[in-house]
Simulated assay, not measured.
Amino acid sequence: MSGIADGRIVIVTGAGRGIGRAHALSFAAEGASVVVNDIGVAADGSDPSSAPAQQVVDEITAAGGKAVANTDDIADWEGAQRLIDTAIDTFGSLDVLVNNAGFLRDRMLVNLAEDEWDAVMRVHLKGHFAPMRHAASYWRSESKAGRERDARIINTSSGAGLLGSIGQGNYSAAKAGIASLTLVAAAEFARYGVTVNAIAPAARTRMTEQAFADMMARPGDGFDAMAPENISPLVVWLGSSESSDVTGRVFEVEGGKVSIAQGWRHGPARDKGERWAPAELGPVVKELLSNAIEPEPVYGA
């Protein structure tokens, strides 16, 4: 098996099912050695199992590729370190980290419980930070030892994180945090030969199958726009050596469509040169709003 990722050593978190599984299979098909990470829980977070990760490993090896399973909790500090160590101990190095794992605890904000907020923040936000932190420490050590790196981190944000989504305040906040974390990491890790980008995918998974049920391909359409496999080609390209000049970007991916998300930017401004009085600001704010670009609507609004 060879291709655009030939010889690359890749970790994919949450790779036992859905988009993560598609990433793992696609990297392997393009020549990468893959660490398939998944704790194998049910949609409600219960019943952890090694079976989903191992099944993906078995698919890869049956096709002639190289893969190993890892079932560590990526939001656990020591577990995230063990995940990075699995790649290094098994394949001798690490080139690409794809942070993909996550789940949903959807509620309107007025009904959202503290544990539902905490769980989503832990899995999505800390579950991105912890593996990224340990991977970056490894690459920094390599760089200081004079071993030039060509490494990649690909994070997973969401349209909900970019625009917000009704009923998903916790998920939207976590995914927005991932987008911002990506920008900071891209700036900080460049000196070690590491690029950091993010994707905001739209595809059918366990988390989204109900939302996208009416968007599945109809008989005769031929192309399933919501298939998770549609997301992986961009991720594999971002993990390849070809993407070395692309960093600090967020890409939206859906079906056959790839686009660049345009984030927060400085807009219209008025500078008085001294402190404003509250009563002065009404017409100033109205003027600024009249000259500003209208924001995209929140999903579900």
Rank of each mutant, 00 (worst) to 15 (best):
D150W: 05
A203P: 04
A198W: 04
V34I: 13
M121L: 13
G239K: 09
G167I: 05
G177T: 10
A5Y: 00
A151D: 01
R149K: 08
G267F: 02
K257N: 15
E209H: 11
F27S: 07
Y171D: 11
M215W: 04
R270S: 02
A185R: 13
N111G: 06
G248I: 13
A101R: 07
V120Y: 05
L181K: 05
G79E: 05
I88F: 08
E254K: 06
A15N: 00
A186F: 06
D118Q: 06
T247V: 12
S259A: 13
T205L: 07
A190E: 15
A43N: 12
E296D: 10
M1Y: 10
A80E: 13
A179F: 06
S137V: 03
Q168V: 03
D150L: 14
V285W: 14
I74N: 10
Q262S: 10
S232P: 01
W77F: 08
I199M: 09
M207I: 03
D214I: 05
V98C: 15
G159S: 08
D95M: 12
G64I: 07
S172F: 12
A187G: 14
R206Y: 02
P219C: 02
L163W: 08
T86G: 11
L112N: 05
N197M: 10
V253C: 08
G40K: 08
S244L: 06
E209A: 09
L162C: 02
V120M: 10
F189H: 14
G193Q: 05
F27N: 05
M207L: 11
H23I: 06
Q54H: 04
M207D: 00
L25A: 10
I199H: 02
